[in-house]
Design a protein around this nucleic acid. Sequence first.
DNA 1: GGTGTAGAGG
DNA 2: CCTCTACACC
Lengths: 260, 260
Amino acid sequence: MKIVSWNINSVRFRIAIVEQFLREAEPDVLCLQETKVIDADFPFAMFRSLGYDHIVIHGQRMHHGVATLSRVPIVADDRFDWQANAEARHVGVRLPNGVRLENVYVPAGGDVPDREVNPKFGQKLDFVARMIDWSRGLDMPTILTGDFNIAPLPSDVWSHKALLKTVSHTPIEVEALDQLQASNDWVDLGRHFHPAPARLHTWWSYRSPDWTVNDRGRRLDHMWATADVAKTATAHTVFEACRSWLSPSDHVPIMTEFDF
Amino acid sequence: MKIVSWNINSVRFRIAIVEQFLREAEPDVLCLQETKVIDADFPFAMFRSLGYDHIVIHGQRMHHGVATLSRVPIVADDRFDWQANAEARHVGVRLPNGVRLENVYVPAGGDVPDREVNPKFGQKLDFVARMIDWSRGLDMPTILTGDFNIAPLPSDVWSHKALLKTVSHTPIEVEALDQLQASNDWVDLGRHFHPAPARLHTWWSYRSPDWTVNDRGRRLDHMWATADVAKTATAHTVFEACRSWLSPSDHVPIMTEFDF
DNA sequence: GGTGTAGAGG
DNA sequence: CCTCTACACC
């Protein structure tokens, strides 16, 4: 079972490269974030044409929006509002073996890492705090994946020093993500298969004509699993090449293979 | 001497097909309307690379804007404000033989053909009225070309009956254009070479997935010359095929060949 | 239907 | 840098 997470930055605008990726990587399940489309306008046709007939979406107008698409049967499960503002940032499904798959898009958090000056930063921390509450009570085999918008380890960013005051890598965010991981027996599958300080970036800003020149990447996208599920994982891949495809997302897909 | 007029609907967005056209038709002079670019951002490079080194532009932000580009020497001449509102809708040049070439973009005139309800319609009629004043005093060999936004003859539109109340083909606009033509010894070179009711449309709305299906064209673009110049004209061509090029303008180029 | 603008959000 | 929305204008 191959499970992918990809912040696609508009699934309609990106439909061609999503198709290209699905044909090449052939995942069983695809978790998308930032679909930026209401459910009525979701581009079902391409996915169905490739056999992804099981589609669970939680969209909204303009921003955010998540979707989980599968060629094996999945069942819609929960939809948490971890930001308590009705933004479409989570959708959960059950896989055929009963494992829960939680697809999440953590808020970016604005520019200034200060709750007072920048309310978006506070909302991001609150979002993770509510994820921690949920995680503590969790007692089922679960995969938690998506765009967490936090790069926890020094080797998860192109320069630990340069980014200590940059939202996504500030100590307070890293501490929050560490607490989330400690709140259950979560395994960070990316680092499980590619221990730090291996290169494992999943995002490069658009604000550079050529992302490969300075190569200022960050690991914002993650695939976690509870220990019972994690021990069935056999591989984890970051599809860095997708960042150079035509009209790319600023994020690349990550994929974990499970032995079930 | 081959002279072309083309409403290009953004010269920057359309730069590829302009280049394609110049390579295929090889005009000596190109009059563009709706360049939609300020002079500082005009895409000079492509034109210069093809030998169009003589460039006289009258641009503005956002809307309108005209440009005359030539591979034979031209000299900037007048810039009339026939709408008395500082919109960039005209630029005049002198050709090497002294003939004046007036490149004009007549206002579209809005939707409702009523001066009271729709001020844009009044501005269009006022614009033509000022052209008539100018034309009456004209005593030099002159070519007047551009997007006139009026289709004067019944055969200049896909349905005379259906368009009698549609701006561009209303009797009051046709009457204004007739007066303009009568105000000097103007020859309508399109109809000179392709007498009515020959097909001679130059514009098809974007509001149809396939312009060829209903083929609801109009002749909005014109090339006129005073009689002395007109008698040196040898051919007139409408490049209808350009309407099917990739990412086309809604107007196609028209070209007159002169024996000078 | 298509183009330009502006601002929000990333 | 890139996407979305909304609007003006054609």
